[in-house]
Nucleic acid binder design. Structure first.
Length: 932
RNA sequence: GCGGAUGUGGUGAAAUUGGUAGACACGCCAGACUUAGGAUCUGGUGCCGAGAGGUAUGCGGGUUCGAGUCCCUCCAUCCGCACCA
């Protein structure tokens, strides 16, 4: 019976193992639909299984969600708490390029390591529901959902997606004039014209409407590597890998028409229980701005109308020139011969810089005059057209009307190139800078003169519409999401080509599995790795060729929370009955870095699947908590420049040194273990040291992101080995609020470990026998218990995971003082503890011989208010807000009685120093304040 | 430049609606026990002061009987970004 007690101490390691085995063997965490209980869905953002394994930062959110899942089970909910892996991704592919090993193999290896580490923490996941985005059983449905996007368009009148077949029949009856279908297409055709299109022409036209579509997009192209690069992979116009030049290039790419959902993605935020910080980030990303589209005629090109978007149509009379993005298509046509050379040279120069570079560099102003002129819609004056890289092709129309008096960028551009500036603001000085405030009165603007700005916007819009020179327009910053990647390790598209027209593979041939390739690199001609495959390498091959791009990382993660509901369904991506029962995620916990990527895409896919009638809700995550990052504490040593000599921290200022990261395992309490350091890497074997006066070598430190290259990664494994899983779980919570970023530091872990030992001592009698008694507890003990029940419950209800730990510590301290070994107290206490320390709670429950199965199957103790009711209260008495002494009164006493009594006290007279009180404030049950 | 977050002891932090600032823990100091241990237990610990007392939540103001909490100005640190027309 005392199996887990050694030398009067609990053996946490055996307890962990025993219960982890028990849970696995008894399928304790398996969950099924149960209509007798309310459901609750607790989800973690699933991890990418990297080769480095889990570090102490990962479990922070997992521990919090596990505690909450266990709490909600005790509260009587049927809790769904699954886990899986976002297992497609670049690192596995990079590793494959280097080693030739198939990414599926390394991924499988990493997953099993992750699983082992997760299991050691005692998480209550229902592993039968595990999903892996790289498994064909899973990505079959990612491909299927892609097909639904391809087969749909967005109806702006109904504000929802609909089958493309409806649009096709609409076109064949009345063409596309006045159509409500969302599109960037400008071409108008009649029903007759539509019906006379060849099938290929029809298909090309439909790509302008489909929610998943093919179009030409600008990409960062590295000719030397033969591949497209992400912004992250480029520094100063050179690829991080190899340092080769990168240029902007147009390429056929799949995209998702997320812009169609911009308005709904924005308004949907209002009803979500997310922090304002993250909602603001999404609002900012979506970037709604209200203004007008204005058309400018171009001199000598009557066939062209230059379209610009402005939020300030009231400043139209302040326009003194136009600026086009260097990528603007009009530049091909409008630039006179004598200017072509300069414009071309500028375009080439700009194409070497990524959009990110262009945006980061605010100081540097560049541009060239195109030699062409636009015509002002009202004044008919000539406006010179420039091209400049501060105008981005991807925002708005890629062209701006420049109003130097009202926009600082236009102002700076005008000053730099000595272009005219005309002031349209009444009584405002613009000698030094533009006036960007949206207040004041317009002048110098013909029919807008004397109007207040909002009124002027109104009038300008009316005039634009009346003269057919523009219209009101809502613009979004959000861009359509590029959906193809030139990579191997991602989902293949369910697409083949016939005469360069993309066609969908029939459902019965899904999944299209990743074909075997001889190398995970692009082909010589710069085609994606899949193009290396031969026809027979595909499990299904159709048409002239298959699609060689793969899907991006966010494809699989945009819907995985739905697959957990029904992970083994062979007929549907999720069963209707299953999704009707579990609904959307009640609590979602994960890192802040996904604020605008994953969280926005998942919302987009959910809204689409809702529109198509597949799921009964249109927001995926009701409540969101962003856990903070756990930062590493790196150790630094200082090497004298050009020597192999290292200086201790306090003496480093006397030398010129380089800081070098040193493995934190070679350092304890900032002292470097010298012999271990010499053995660490061969280059340090004969290093010299300049030591402190006491003979030690002290390291410097820095708090930064945990990473392998900084040698500051703390894995949970060693700590679990030393203290057990429960200690680590509690300690990570005890560090502070989950939302907060904090440096990892194990200094305090002994405190939490000591608490668990102290708690278990309540259950032991002197001779290490289990000494729990059935005697009735004292009133005092009951008070401690119920005070604790209330606080644990209140704190968990507001996700204050850290304060629960100290509440439990206080309870144990107080019960220890009372030498409490009463079952009536200790039994409910174990239930309170169990979400945090499930292994120990179960073990104590078992050894106590308590009934009703395991601790996890109990109900959360019921808080009894009456036990805590007091008849008296110890009032703090303060003078001018400063607390001086306390006095106990019956709680039934009224304000007036208390005030009179307090004023009469000799102690009060002492603090009054002879003055008469001006006012005595008594808040019943709270405080007394005497103002003198 | 824009947006967001955070500033409380030597350290991590607590204080849910304005009502006893620093709970709980680490660390430190003193002691007990002990065939030295990273075990356990007891007491102390914001700062100044011998003490009475004073003082203290990034700085400076304000509202209030009362402010860590609400309002204004400023400062510092961290994170994100997109010169957004």
């Amino acid at each position: 019976m005392l199996l887990e007690v050694k030398n009067m101490e609990l053996d946490f390691q055996s307890i962990d193992k025993h219960w982890q085995l028990y849970w696995a063997e008894n399928q304790s965490n398996k969950v099924l639909e149960d209509t007798n209980k309310p459901k609750y869905y607790v989800l973690d953002m699933f991890p990418y299984p990297s080769g480095a394994g889990l570090h102490v930062g990962h479990p922070l959110g997992y521990i919090a969600s596990d505690i909450y899942a266990r709490y909600m089970r005790l509260k009587g909910f049927n809790v769904l708490h699954p886990m899986g892996y976002d297992s497609f991704g670049l690192p596995a592919e990079q590793y494959a390029i280097q080693t030739g090993q198939h990414p599926a193999l390394t991924t499988a290896k990493n997953i099993s390591r992750y699983r082992e580490q997760l299991d050691r923490l005692g998480f209550s996941y229902d592993w039968d529901r595990q999903v892996k985005t790289s498994s064909p059983d899973y990505y079959r449905w990612t491909q299927w959902i892609f097909k639904q996007f391809f087969n749909a368009f967005f109806n702006t009148a109904l504000n929802k997606a609909q089958p493309i077949s409806e649009l096709i029949s609409e076109f064949s009856i009345k063409g596309n004039e006045g159509s409500n279908a969302y599109s960037d297409n400008q071409l108008i055709f009649s029903a007759k014209e539509w019906n006379e299109f060849t099938p290929n022409e029809q298909e090309k036209m439909l790509l302008n409407y489909r929610l998943a579509f093919l179009s030409e997009t600008w990409v960062n192209w590295c000719p030397k590597l033969g591949t497209v690069l992400a912004n992250d992979e480029i520094i100063n116009g050179l690829s991080v890998r190899g340092g080769y030049p990168v240029e902007q290039k147009k390429m056929m790419q799949w995209s998702m028409r997320i812009k169609a959902y911009a308005e709904r993605l924005l308004s949907g935020l209002d009803n979500l229980d997310w922090t304002d910080a993250i909602k603001d980030q999404q609002r900012n990303w979506i970037g709604k701005s209200v203004g007008a589209t204005v058309f400018f005629a171009i001199e000598e090109h009557s066939e062209l109308k230059l379209e610009v978007f402005t939020t300030r149509p009231d400043t139209l009379f302040g326009v003194t020139f136009m600026v086009l993005a260097p990528e603007h298509p009009f530049l091909e046509q409008i630039v006179p011969v004598e200017f072509k050379g300069a414009v071309k040279a500028y375009q080439v120069e700009v194409s070497k810089r990524t959009e990110r570079d262009r945006q980061a560099d605010v100081q540097h102003i560049s541009g060239v005059f195109t030699g062409a002129y636009a015509i002002h819609p009202f004044t008919k004056k000539k406006l010179p057209i420039w091209t400049g890289d501060y105008v981005l092709s991807s925002y708005g129309t890629g062209a701006v009307m420049s109003v130097p008096c009202g926009d600082q960028r236009d102002y700076a551009f005008a000053k730099h190139f000595n272009l005219p500036i005309s002031n349209v603001f009444k009584g405002v000085n613009i000698d030094q800078e533009a006036f960007a405030e949206k207040t004041g009165v317009i002048s110098n603007s013909e029919f807008l003169d004397g109007l207040e700005i909002n009124k002027a916007i109104e009038v300008a819009c009316q005039r634009l519409v009346a003269e057919k020179n523009g219209f009101r327009k809502v613009n979004f910053r959000l861009r359509d999401a590029i959906f193809s990647r030139q990579r191997y390790w991602g989902e293949p598209f369910p697409v083949y080509y016939e005469n360069e027209i993309p066609k969908l593979v029939a459902d019965e041939h899904l999944p299209i599995e990743l074909p075997v390739v001889d190398a995970y690199l692009p082909t010589e001609s710069g085609e994606p790795p899949l193009a290396r495959s031969k026809k027979e390498d595909w499990n299904h091959f159709q048409g002239d060729r298959m699609e060689y791009n793969t899907m991006p990382g966010w494809a699989g993660s945009s819907w995985y929370f739905l697959r957990y509901l029904d992970p083994n369904n062979k007929e549907e991506f999720v069963g209707k009955d299953k999704v009707a029962y579990w609904q959307n995620v009640d609590l979602y916990i994960g890192g802040n870095e996904h604020a605008t990527g994953h969280l926005l895409y998942a919302r987009f896919w959910t809204k689409f699947l809702f529109d198509m009638g597949f799921i009964p809700f249109d927001e995926p995550f009701k409540k969101l908590i962003n856990q903070g990052m756990i930062l590493g504490r790196s150790s630094l040593i200082y090497r004298i420049k050009g020597q192999n000599t290292f200086v201790t921290l306090s003496k480093k200022s006397a030398f010129e040194t380089d800081p070098i990261h040193v493995d934190i395992n070679l350092v304890s309490a900032d002292k470097l273990h010298l012999s271990a350091f010499k053995n660490w890497l061969p280059e340090y074997a004969d290093a010299d040291f300049i030591l402190e006066d006491d003979g030690s070598f002290i390291c410097g430190y820095e708090v930064e992101k945990m990473s392998k290259s900084k040698f500051n990664v703390q894995t949970p494994d060693d700590l679990i080995e030393k203290f057990g899983a429960d200690t680590l779980r509690m300690y990570e919570m005890f560090l502070g609020p989950v939302e907060q970023s904090k440096p990892w530091d194990t200094k305090g872990i002994t405190g939490v470990h000591g608490f668990l030992k102290k708690l278990s001592r309540l259950f032991l009698s002197k001779d290490a026998a289990w000494g729990v008694v059935d005697d009735a507890p004292s009133k005092e003990m009951l008070k401690i218990l119920h005070k604790t029940i209330r606080r644990v419950q209140d704190d968990l209800d507001r996700f204050s995971f850290n304060t629960v730990v100290s509440t439990l510590m206080i309870a144990v301290n107080e019960l220890t003082d009372l030498k409490c070994n009463h079952k009536q107290i200790l039994q409910p206490l174990l239930v309170l503890l169990s979400p945090y320390a499930p292994h120990l709670a179960e073990e104590l429950w078992r050894v106590m011989g308590l009934p009703d199965g395991t601790c996890a199957l109990q109900a959360f103790p019921i808080f009894d208010e009456s036990i805590l009711q007091e008849s008296t209260y110890d009032y703090p008495v303060s003078f001018n807000g400063k607390m001086r002494f306390k006095h106990t009164f019956d709680l039934s006493l009224k304000e007036k009685e208390i005030a009179d009594f307090i004023v009469a006290l000799p102690l009060t007279q002492k603090y009054l120093e002879g003055k008469t009180p001006k006012k005595v404030i008594v808040v019943q049950g709270k405080i007394v304040n005497i103002v003198s």
